[in-house]
Amino acid sequence: MQRDIDRIYLIDRFLKGELSGPILDEFKNRLRTNPEFALEVESQKAIIEGIKLARKQQLISILNGVKTPSAIPAIEHSFENTKKINHPLVPILEENEQNEPKGYKLKPNFNDWYLAFAAVLLAGFLLYFIFGYYIPHQKLEMANIDSTITNVYEEDNLATTPEVRKPDLTLNSNLQDTSKSRDDSLGKILISQLGDSIKIENDTKIFQTMYSVAAFETITPNVSDNNSNVSNGGPGNEIKIDNLRKVKGSTVKVEYWRSVVGFKGYKLSGVKLQLFDMKPEEKVSLKYLDKQLYLKKNGSYFKMNDSGNFEPYQKENNSELIKSLDSN
């Protein structure tokens, strides 16, 4: 047996090209002179080629089962020869080949964990946006429109650019404002439902003009604790005016506004006066008394407080004051 082992090993070395010198010469001589030996060498050579082919096909089968990186679609190649030969060493590949059609198949690869993680994040964000924000938002908005009209909110800078201002349609502010009184502020926006569309109406300025307003101040020459001609905030809350003198007046810009919610009142900011529910053709006059502006309409005086806020008209009932205003 040892001789056989050595002989086969010698033939292996010859076929690998590892023999040299006298050993190689002897081997070649034996090949020429011994046909049986030559036949054995040829036989061994053919078997070795078969072993090599089997190993090559096995490695190719392994390569065919490789999942490629995600950057490139996987190419699964059905190697023609491997289909005909059984490969017990690679059962997984056998199963793959049995299940796959012949030829090439492109497949996306999701093996990379970061891609999967990004996909989960994206899906979560979309779900949150749809169910947590968009749908509830839509429902609330529809509910708000169904209440037909009248959702109103305040906008502070109405008087500055009323024509171009854009209403804040934020739903939450609308819902909060429904509990407010309609007449406690100016700068209203009326939202009404007209069929399927929403019409938004603003307050509108209908006229403006400039008034040169005269100004007066009281003169109180004698004031004492026991006997005073002018009392301010005393019993009966009366003001006694002895005399008036004219002082330098000022020019007041007067604007006439139409309120969409029927607000009746005014807003005075320095020398700018906005009047609501008054018509330009109505006769009105203005007068300063002790730096306080009064508006006269149809024989009645209205005190204009320079608060910068929307305030209702308040008729002045102090007869002494009215008398003093009328005296000039």
Binding site: K45, A46, I47, E49, G50, I51, L53, A54, R55, Q57, Q58, N81, I85, N86, H87, P88, L89
Partner: peptide, 23 residues
């Protein structure tokens, strides 16, 4: 080579130890 594919079949039919060793 000649008949190598059929030899290949027989290689694959060997037990695992022999197959691995020869390969």
């Amino acid at each position: 080579m000649y008949d190598s594919k059929i030899v290949c079949d027989y290689v694959n039919n060997l037990d695992e130890t022999c197959r691995r060793l020869l390969m």
